[in-house]
Design a protein around this nucleic acid. Structure first.
Lengths: 109, 109
DNA sequence: TTGATTGTTCGACTTTTTCGAACTAACGAA
DNA sequence: TTCGTTAGTTCGAAAAAGTCGAACAATCAA
């Protein structure tokens, strides 16, 4: 497996960040990581095949939204919550809250 | 010209909203409308041809981000700022502020 | 009617997304 | 070591979305 690139906090572009969150699958992943803490890919239980999941996670990584570290055979993903807070104060937390507002309004599961 | 559809405030999905803002051209349009107030398409001065602009504005409209009304020969665009504030408190304002943070950090023009 | 301005729609081309199949990496057990 | 299992990535082809010039439609003013 190749070296995984993570952008420096100052290289993170707002439009990329919003793009990374502007997909139902990726937004759900962000919510889950926010609630549950760090998780390996296999515990994200999304509704897409693993090749597609891999693609979504790459977009999120390259946008600067999450950090990925290797632990044995798994890849642990974590939101870059504190870093993002320092670069765009309130932004991620506000989006996560909006996601909960939406979930509360649409009680699906 | 066909009737323009605007989604009801409760139909607005967060992921669509973030997607609509997750493009540099569209984010710039949102910023400009936030600063200058309502504007016709021709005064948005974006760097894309008008057919592409028309496409971007449709995505923003259908996401529920902006409202478009006809006035004579022009189409006046306005952010659905108050409505969005009631549905997702703080969200749009926070994103607009983050956009300014980014602009301040990267003084291009 | 003619001309100017504003914006949408069409069609072709390019880019991005999706997903199964094949592959690589790390680990445990025999 | 070798085999088997689990975890993820990469490849390649098909589908979907974005881009942009050209043609079109709507409004207004000579």
């Amino acid at each position: 497996m190749r070296v995984i690139h993570h952008p420096d906090i100052h290289e993170i572009a707002l439009a990329n960040l919003l793009y990374a969150l502007g997909d139902p699958v990726r937004l759900a992943i962000a919510q889950r990581l926010a609630c549950e803490g760090d998780l390996p890919c296999c515990e994200l239980d999304v509704s897409v095949p693993k090749s597609t999941l891999s693609h979504h996670l790459r977009i999120m990584r390259e946008a600067g939204l999450l950090y990925c570290r290797k632990e044995g055979t798994q890849h642990i993903n974590s939101l870059r919550r504190a870093e993002l807070e320092s670069r765009f104060p309130g932004l991620l937390e506000n989006i996560l809250q909006a996601a909960q507002v939406e979930d509360a309004a649409t009680p699906s599961a």
